[in-house]
């Protein structure tokens, strides 16, 4: 770590060029709540740190028509202070609000949460459930990638080493839509999800579910988008039977491991419980969003 170089470029082009030129280990730095911790515990010894917080595209929140676009390095706290975004995407904000503590959220970004590629990242399942798309840029140009396709394994993403996530686009919300995210941790804060479940749904005028997306955390090597669980809701009134089916589908999709944070048996069971509870909250929120 004796030759660590720190750069804070102000344009996307400079950032990607710096990353592309580095032969050793380079790390993008957003809030640093993963990067710095990993450096302190000797897990990584980067040669180059590229701080992206001075690049405007990564730090803005803006409406594009009815859709929301926010920068990958926007801090959790900044999102929490954005009233309309909170009203529109309460489930995404459930995830953001759970990250660490007040101090951590003052720095931690959704982009960092995603690119750290932990299967337990809290903002990722509700972002997947929301249908968020990441705008990625690299030396060879830009591409759009659905959030569920970014993480490919624990600590691994589909990004090239000189690519960065610029921003996320969340689609326009039809009326009577609601989303929610719940995670299970033994403690109330400062803990890592043993299981997480995000549900996003839309109802028609009769209260029948017309669209749904369900995503799970910490039950597989990557966050999971579970189509079968969504199918259990679509076309129903999200009644007891549908919720039972949702829970069963969520549990069935799990491919967890036994580790210090939970057992296979426990994670499978609780994934169903949480998916069900999250769907109930999303339903209630959808009902209120006429």
């Amino acid at each position: 770590m004796q030759n660590l170089r720190y750069e804070a470029p102000e344009t996307l082009a400079d950032a990607t060029a710096l990353l592309a030129a580095e032969d050793g280990m380079a790390r993008v730095l957003a809030g640093g709540t993963d990067v710095i911790v990993q450096m302190h515990s000797d897990l990584i010894e980067p040669d180059l740190i590229v701080d992206v917080k001075n690049i405007p595209e990564l730090t803005e929140i803006a409406k594009e028509g009815g859709a929301y676009r926010f920068g990958a390095a926007v801090s959790g706290k900044t999102l929490m202070l954005h009233e309309d975004f909170n009203k529109t995407w309460p489930g995404v904000m459930d995830g953001v609000r759970l990250i660490g503590s007040l101090q951590i959220r003052g720095r931690a970004s959704v982009g960092g949460n995603l690119c750290n590629a932990s299967p337990a990242a809290d903002s990722v399942p509700p972002m997947i459930a929301a249908g968020a798309v990441a705008s990625v840029i690299g030396p060879n140009g830009a591409r759009d990638i659905p959030v569920e396709d970014i993480v490919t394994g624990p600590g691994q993403t589909c990004l090239d080493k000189s690519e960065i996530v610029v921003s996320f686009l969340l689609p326009e919300r039809p009326p009577r839509s609601g989303d929610a995210y719940l995670r299970f941790t033994p403690r109330t804060e400062m803990d890592i999800a043993v299981v997480g479940a995000g549900v996003n749904l839309t109802l028609d005028d009769d209260g029948a579910c017309t669209a749904a997306r369900v995503a799970l955390a910490a039950v597989a090597p990557t966050p999971l988008l579970v189509a079968e669980a969504a199918d259990a809701l679509i076309g129903t009134k999200v009644d007891e039977t549908a919720l039972e089916a949702l829970a069963a589908a969520a549990s069935a999709a799990c491919n967890p491991i036994d580790d210090k944070r939970g057992t296979v048996e426990y994670r499978i069971k609780v994934a169903g419980v949480l998916a069900r509870r999250a769907a109930a909250i999303a339903l209630e929120r959808a009902g209120k969003n006429q």
Binding site: P186, R187, T188, E189, M190, D191, I192, K260, R261
Partner: peptide, 10 residues
């Protein structure tokens, strides 16, 4: 993180 002493809100 994984040796879980209670936090204040627990």
């Amino acid at each position: 993180l994984d040796y879980r002493v209670p936090v204040a809100s627990d």
